[in-house]
Design a protein around this nucleic acid. Structure first.
Length: 272
DNA sequence: AGTGCGACCCGAACGC
DNA sequence: TGCGTTCGGGTCGCAC
């Protein structure tokens, strides 16, 4: 489940490995991953090189000079670097071969991830990018901003934290952790949230995402970032996947409920 | 406009 | 053992 901290880890680790290497061929094994016309996708990549890797929310932006290759890992997308001669293994869907006989391989067991090529000047036109909200570590994420975005919403806070147009980059793990740290009940409606609670959410977002990025993200189930890098944040998780364990603050048992169809973990005593 | 929900996927976990 | 069923997870698009 790559969220902002995992995507940031992928960005940093990949940058060390693939910049300024000429792309000599592209192999699209599973076409649905690539949303752009396939011929364009191959023709534009070949001959160019990645000059930088940026990130907006959970989106990776591979900078090709005049184009961006956008990549969203969804739940289980991963990138690996392998020698070009190595066999394509199961779940490797897009292979980008470099002139130095290495290759960047997109691996995704669920096939949910997506890639797009977009001209740099058209980036603002991409709907998914255009509507991204404010990032957890951005100074513009203030209690007043959140209060204004939440106050007319008659839906649960858990759902609102997952809304990428409000806060950009939180997924299920960090949404659970942020609500616990802020002592906000996941079922509480946005319209019932106080300015003080918004302040707590901002502070919790800041500290949790900062720590998660420092620790290289979280490894849950099948997820490793890229290049075999394993996140260490899982040892700091207070509620996520800890159903029936004692809350580390009050000792009450952590509960698991569904909110908006998503698995939600919280302490019924600390988050009333 | 705001809200809810199914579709997209397939491996893991579970039930029998 | 082996088969069938259920679940999960981010985002989009459609229905209400």
């Amino acid at each position: 489940m790559p969220e902002i901290a995992e995507v940031e880890t992928v960005r940093k680790t990949l940058k060390e490995k693939i910049l300024a290497k000429k792309i000599i061929s592209v192999n699209i094994v599973y076409p649905r991953i690539v949303e752009s016309p396939k011929d364009d996708f191959v023709n534009i990549l070949v001959g160019r090189c990645f000059q930088d890797i940026k990130r907006i929310g959970k989106w990776l932006l591979f900078d090709l000079g005049d184009y961006y290759l956008l990549s969203h890992l969804r739940m289980e997308g991963k990138f690996f670097i392998k020698d070009s001669c190595e066999k394509i293994v199961k779940h490797e869907h897009v292979i980008i071969n470099f002139a130095d006989n290495t290759s960047l391989r997109y691996h995704d067991t669920r096939k949910f991830g997506r890639m797009n090529l977009v001209k740099k000047e058209d980036l603002d036109q991409v709907p998914a990018i255009k509507k991204q909200g404010i990032e957890p570590l951005d100074d513009k994420l203030t209690k007043e901003y959140l209060f204004n975005r939440f106050k007319k919403k008659n839906i649960p806070m858990k759902t609102l934290l997952l809304d990428q147009t409000i806060i950009s980059g939180l997924g299920n793990i960090y949404a659970n952790e942020v609500l616990f740290a802020a002592k906000v009940n996941p079922l509480k409606k946005g319209s019932d949230i106080s300015l003080k609670e918004c302040e707590n959410i901002v502070l919790s977002c800041n500290s949790i995402i900062k720590k998660a990025i420092e620790e290289g993200g979280t490894t849950i189930k099948s997820y490793t970032s890229s290049l075999g890098v394993t996140g260490r944040f899982q040892q700091y998780l207070m509620v996520h996947k800890r159903e029936n364990e004692a809350c580390q603050f009050c000792g009450a048992l952590i509960e698991n409920i569904k909110v908006g169809g998503r698995s939600t973990y919280y302490c019924p005593n600390c988050q009333k």
